[in-house]
Design a protein around this nucleic acid. Structure first.
Lengths: 195, 195
DNA sequence: GTCTATAACCTGATAGAC
DNA sequence: GTCTATCAGGTTATAGAC
């Protein structure tokens, strides 16, 4: 599917990563996609439609590369976990675009209750995946312990990601901090089990 | 200092906590403050000036209540640490306003390089304070270990805070997760020291 | 210092031709 | 499906009276 519609969605992802969800202007998106503004309204009805479909598009793309990364290290749950989490802290156009858009979606939801339900569901899915991997890495731990560790790791990742993107934290430093947290959570699950 | 100018800054804090930095409209701020729009321009020159001074105002207010909280538990570094960090996860108007505005400042800086320098400096100061308290709680640890723990705890706090404000995480749950992370970081400093 | 009125601009959205 | 106008409404910022 590489039609005009998809081109516009790709362009919207780039514009959002540059200007933010709230900084997206239909005219700028039109210029970025090389089409007229009214064509965008033809395909997406209104600004909210552009945003809704673009965020969906970004979500699908993120799922794809998360799945791809997982399969790289299949069989070693600890490596798989580290790989999937550290994947979000990389200076490539695709990761930057996705992380930026995700952060914007989160930040926008603080002021826009309409976005909260989708966001909470996506967050829950994401936490659940990580909890599952923690469970495979430490099958003896309890499910609540896995869930808490997954919530801490993903929340930390979001915090580090926005610090990186906002210029408060160099990328390699953020990666080291996240790596340290993964090790600490795994040690912690070990400790709870043996204690 | 409780003059018109300060009243406007207080009103701006409320509007930002309701609409976001990028959702602030001068007309709405004027209504909130009970003054005319042009009076705002008289005092703050332009929209950027309003934002700049308001964010400064919020920073000072946060410093004040952080300092106040620290003195409550003075003498017990561990309790002081927990108190200061958990202070940011409370459902009071003031904390909500500050957390919301801080999150917005962070989110805006992703797209506005002008904000980055101030933000990085404020972040550094904040991390440094927490590292200092960790050092007092575990004087035997190394400075880099304290710094890393402080960076993880403050980044986690920011991540949990925005999840709370965006409706993905109940407040009491966020508090428990942060409390668990504080304990884990302190245990970790212990482990590094004895290992 | 503070107001009312308004200029100047920007942005989302639509009409209508092709 | 795609374009070129263009409108309607909202927003920043200024002029000028008091």
């Amino acid at each position: 599917m590489s039609d005009r519609r998809t081109e516009i969605l790709r362009a919207a992802t780039r514009v959002i990563s540059r200007r933010g969800v709230r900084g997206l202007r239909v005219a700028e998106l039109a210029a970025e996609a090389g089409v007229s503004a009214s064509l965008i309204y033809y395909h997406f009805t209104d600004r909210a439609g552009i945003l809704r479909e673009t965020l969906e598009f970004i979500g699908e793309r993120a799922d794809r590369y998360t799945a791809a990364a997982g399969s790289d290290a299949a069989g070693d749950p600890r490596a798989e976990l580290a790989q999937i989490l550290l994947l979000e802290l990389q200076d490539t156009a695709e990761v930057r675009e996705n992380s930026t858009a995700w952060g914007e979606l989160r930040a926008s939801a603080v002021f826009d209750p309409d976005l909260r339900e989708d966001l909470a569901r996506a967050t829950h899915t994401w936490v659940h995946e990580i909890a599952y991997l923690l469970g495979r890495a430490h099958p003896s731990g309890t499910a609540p312990a896995h869930a808490a560790a997954a919530e801490r790791l993903t929340a930390l990742l979001e915090g580090l990601s926005v610090r990186w993107l906002s210029g408060s934290l160099p990328l390699d430093h953020a990666r080291r901090l996240l790596g340290g947290a993964i090790d600490a959570e795994l040690r912690n699950l070990q400790r709870v089990h043996s204690g």
